[in-house]
């Protein structure tokens, strides 16, 4: 006891507990890739929004600094083709999403059984999806070709008249949506099939014992349980087809005339082909706003549907 002298401990200074710099920098290093990615996404977006308020034209030097306020937006909304462009953008998205969902549901219901045919056909579903959209479209374009294409002979064979497909305004929308539906119905079918396969067996056995018909069970049990999967399909397909470019461009470049000039095609033609960057941007930004609002709404609906399907 005598040797030990009680000393008040010296207070620990901040410098004393300094960690090696690498340890201190670690959190920042970890989020660095995400930051870089964010910059990669945000920078063009912000610049794009900025350009939409200028008179930026590739052919006019320094025009990106020529601030014109809302002029580009006013021009877009007052353009005589704007309403038609809106119509064709929405029509394309609604038709393709709707039909793909409907056909996907039927295909998935047919494949959701323990048969050899289903086992062989299910992997084949992904065939259209492994082809690049542009190439798939070009192949369809060849098949639609009036002189050498195979589609008209098939139509004639079953007693229908030849079509001029994407070459005339009357059937142009039909032709491109047909390609989209061919290409993406398998996606819908696979999502639905994944949903069906994930369901527990017991409630469906109970429904059989309860004496429910196929339709009754489908309406009251299968469909509510599938809703989250259906909404996912709508989120993906609706957003994707609102901004669809590949198929329309490869098929007709937006033609004939302006028949298939969606927002995306209009933005591309104005900003890139005509090099009037700032005039095309409002279409892209409007498209962004529409997709943002629709997807926010759908994702909320998805959350609700998922809770409902799980039984909450």
């Amino acid at each position: 006891m005598s040797e030990q002298v009680m000393k008040t401990p010296t207070p620990v200074k901040d410098e004393d507990i300094r960690l090696p710099w690498l340890v201190r920098a670690r959190p920042y290093l970890i989020i660095l890739p995400a930051m870089l990615l964010l910059i990669g996404i945000l920078y063009p977006f912000v610049v794009g929004v900025y350009y939409s308020f200028t008179a930026f034209n590739f052919k006019v030097p320094d025009s990106q600094f020529n601030f014109v306020g809302l002029r580009n937006y006013v021009r877009m909304f007052t353009d005589e083709d704007f309403l038609y462009s809106t119509y064709i953008t929405l029509a394309y998205a609604v038709i393709t999403t709707g039909v793909e969902l409907f056909l996907g549901l039927i295909v998935a219901m047919l494949l959701n059984r323990d048969s050899r045919v289903a086992k062989i056909l299910t992997p084949m579903l992904i065939f259209p999806m492994i082809i690049a959209p542009v190439i798939g479209t070009l192949v369809w374009k060849m098949m639609m070709q009036p002189s050498v294409g195979i589609l008209n002979p098939i139509l004639n064979f079953v007693g229908l008249p030849s079509l001029e497909w994407a070459a005339v305004p009357q059937t142009a929308l039909f032709s491109v949506t047909l390609v989209d539906i061919w290409m993406f119905t398998p996606f819908a079918a696979m999502m639905i099939l994944a949903g069906l396969r994930s369901f527990p067996n017991a409630p469906f056995e109970a429904a059989r014992v309860d004496g429910a018909s196929f339709w009754f069970t489908f309406r009251n049990l299968t469909l509510p349980m599938l809703t989250p999967f259906i909404i996912i399909i709508i989120v993906f397909r609706f957003m994707d087809s609102l901004k669809m470019f590949d198929i329309i461009f490869a098929m007709t470049e937006g033609g004939p005339g302006n028949t298939l000039m969606t927002y995306q095609l209009t933005a591309y033609r104005t900003s890139i082909q005509f090099q009037r960057m700032s005039a095309g941007l409002p279409y892209a930004i409007l498209l962004y706003i529409i997709i943002y609002i629709v997807s926010m709404y759908l994702i909320k609906a998805w959350g609700r549907a998922q809770r409902r399907a799980a039984g909450y």
Binding site: P200, A202, P203, A207, L221, P224, A310, G311
Partner: peptide, 9 residues
Amino acid sequence: FETYALYPP
């Protein structure tokens, strides 16, 4: 059913 097999939705 032992596992109840209720209809979740």
